[in-house]
Each structure stands twice: as C-alpha cells, then as structure tokens.
Design a binder for these strands. Sequence first.
DNA 1: ACCTGAACACCGTTCAAGT
DNA 2: ACCTGAACACCGTTCAAGT
Lengths: 179, 179
Amino acid sequence: MSQRPPLTRERIIETALHLIDGQGLSRLTMRRLGDALEVEAMAIYHHLPHGKEQLLEQLIAYVAAHPVPPGAGSARDRLRSWAGGYRERLLDHVGVMPLIVTRRNPGALAATTQSVQDLLRTAGRTEAEAAVGAHTVLGYLLGTVALEARERAAETTPAGLDQDARFLAGLDGVLAGFA
Amino acid sequence: MSQRPPLTRERIIETALHLIDGQGLSRLTMRRLGDALEVEAMAIYHHLPHGKEQLLEQLIAYVAAHPVPPGAGSARDRLRSWAGGYRERLLDHVGVMPLIVTRRNPGALAATTQSVQDLLRTAGRTEAEAAVGAHTVLGYLLGTVALEARERAAETTPAGLDQDARFLAGLDGVLAGFA
DNA sequence: ACCTGAACACCGTTCAAGT
DNA sequence: ACCTGAACACCGTTCAAGT
C-alpha cells in the first residue's frame, strides 16, 4: 500500500525544483532528493545517468525555456506581456538563477532568445538589429531579476520602492530603443 | 627557507579568486585553497571565522565593487566607459557570476548602484528617474555578461558575431532611454 | 596569536547484488 | 528494467593541542 508514483525524469526534476524553491539550492542533494521521491538516492542515476550535473542542466532548461508565444498585437505589447510572465517565472524559482548564470547547458536559452529575435525580425527590424534587440531585452530581464532577488534578500528595500513599476519602466525604456 | 608570505584575508581572497579563474568555482574547496596558500585548510578559519560562506561573500564584494569613478564629461560618456570596464572585470572573473546572482551578501552592489544613481541625479534626472536608470543599466550589464559567458562556453557562437560591438550597441540603446 | 591533526557528519558516485 | 546496500574519495567544520 501507499504506492508511490513511478520514478520518471519529469518527476525527479519537478521534485528537485520544489526542493530548491522550499529550501534553497544549497540543500538540494542527491540523498535528500531521493528521500523526497521515497527512493534511495542511487535510483536517480538510473534515470539521469550523468548524475547531479545532468539534473542541474535539466533544471536550467525547465526554468529558462519560455519563448514568446504566438499572438497578435504590436511587437512591443507582445514583448511586454511575455517579459512580465518570464520575470514572474524566474522570481518564483530564484533558487535556480545561479544555475542559469553558470555556463552549464549553454543552449538552454537558445529557443527563448530566438523567439524574441524572430518577433523583432517580423516587426521589420534588420537581422542585426533584431540580434542586438533580443540580446538586450533578455540581458535586461535576467540581470534585473537577479538584482530584485538580491534586494528581497536584503530586507532593506527602501520603503515605497515598487519593484513591479520599476521593472516596467525600465523595460519600456529598453523596448523604446529596440522594438 | 622558502618563507611564505603571512596569511592575510586579502591574500586568501586573491588566491581564491585566482583558483576560481583557473579551475572554476566548483573546484574551490577549503582544502585546495589551503594547499594553494601553503597552509592547512583549517588555518583559513582563523582569518575568516565564518568559513566558506564568509569567503564567498568577500569574493562577491571584491568583484562586484566597481563604482563610477569621479571625472568630467557627459553622463553618457562616463557611463559608457565605466560599463566597459565593469564588463571586462566581470568577464575576467566569470566564475564568480553565479555567486553575484545568489542572494548572498546582498549589500555588495549597493555602492556601485548608488554611484550610477548619483551620476544620473547630477546630470539632471529626478530621483525616481535616476533610480530606474541605475537599475536598468546595472541589470543590462549583469544580464548581458551572463549571456555572453554562456555563449563563450557553448563554442557555437555564430560566426562573425562581435560580442563587443553588440554590447556597445545594446548599451547605447539603454543609455538613450535613461541618460 | 597563529597554525596543525584528528575526528565527525555529510556529500556525489561506483559497483555488485537483489528483484 | 529498476532499485538497493555497502563502500570510496572527498567535503566543510569543530575542537583540542601544539608553538
């Protein structure tokens, strides 16, 4: 009785993410992850033969993959709402931010970057402009989330500072230059 | 003979940084750091009583502290050359980028951010504009360096992509909105 | 004051063995 | 095929001891 669901890659990754969100990246260990999955740590290696390194790569892919969805509207409007959603996703999983900044799994952001670049291209920008624009928007997004996470950790956020408003104001400034 | 220089906090931190630059963050261990300092690992605790956590905090402070220097010229020119130098510094020590994105030592960027904000303020911006501008420029800088580091790790950088030129083009777009 | 040596709890991973 | 148990090398850290 108390059958546990079968061990799959997806369940491993989701459980690992849940563990990071709750206890922080430094407390994600193979042994603790095994406990959370109700399995011995060594069982994980059967599904992720390259061990923890592969697990971290999967986590990066899982969180970082967030391409611009198809849709109507101006490029600027679509980027604004896409960026807002991406930011929320990253803030929900701040614990994996240090992983994204690592050089592990360098292709994980490719699809996301490409989707922004394609959108700008469709909106009439040259290839070069679109490349610079996508890189700038994504750079702003990642960097700004990192800064916000630090502020929240500090608990010294100046009274009345509205992170949401500041993010949107900064984003509009960036988009004004590139979209 | 072969006297070794006295063990100091500064020497510990610089040696740790050298170790990260050469072998990567994951290979920075107290024992290896001790070896590099020609000392037992436990000796480090006499200078950094809070151990590795404190060491990492010091590394963040050491690399992230890069305020805009005093000088003449337009706000935009001063920010351009400051940002270029900061980017080089971060790329020279990419191994610590994941630490900066952690919520450790959240005050480490305060002086740097403040210096940008002051510069914008002096250049005639309102307090609110300066706050948004400083946050946006610093966010762009950190995020963009993280993306560049990932591209370099991938070795799949599209032929002919000039990271320097793209950085400057993106920076000019950002500065156009805020400085 | 400054450093060492031994010890402890914990980590990622290998490998043979179980079912 | 899927999971376990024991073992190995390594880690951060404590603490008593040396000088």
